[in-house]
């Protein structure tokens, strides 16, 4: 088993705690090989430390290392969904866009003669009806 020599900056207590936490996360989420897990964790801690300023200390520092370490892990291929073929079996195959229909043309046309004729016709019908009733 190879030995990973840690720089002095990684050796403080906060980093040790963060490393432990990230190791647990990495092992639980897809990296089965112990050596690989240690190496991945080391890379994540290193990547995280680049994001954190020296002002962040104590518990916040540990938490920040884990936070950026997890974020760094999510960008690695191990964390992606592998069965992509299952998700995208239907390729995009565009058809013609839906043709929008016009529902407001033509505008209402007011034709007085139509209404006058309709009124006269109605009167005729009633007149005939009244006449037929009398006959009855």
């Amino acid at each position: 088993m190879s030995t990973v020599i840690e720089p002095q900056s990684l050796a403080d207590a906060q980093v040790v705690l963060a490393r432990r936490a990230l190791l647990r996360y990495v092992v639980a989420n897809g990296v089965d090989d112990p050596e690989q897990a240690v190496q991945t964790t080391h890379e994540l801690v290193e990547a995280a430390l680049h994001q954190i300023s020296d002002d962040v200390v104590g518990r916040d520092r540990t938490r920040s290392i884990i936070y950026f370490g997890v974020q760094a892990y999510l960008k690695r291929p191990e964390s992606r969904f592998h069965d992509l073929e299952r998700l995208f079996a239907v390729p995009n195959e565009a058809t013609a866009p839906m043709r929008l229909q016009d529902l407001h043309e033509p505008p209402i046309v007011v034709r007085p003669e139509f209404y006058v004729a309709a009124w006269r016709r109605t009167q005729d019908v009633f007149r005939q009806f009244a006449y037929s009733m009398r006959m009855f």
Binding site: L17, R24, R59, R63, S64
Partner: peptide
Amino acid sequence: LHQAHAAYWSERLLQDVEARA
């Protein structure tokens, strides 16, 4: 989503390792 995920796990894992320590 990554941010929310990392925030959740950073808090959870921290509590976990602190408890073990």
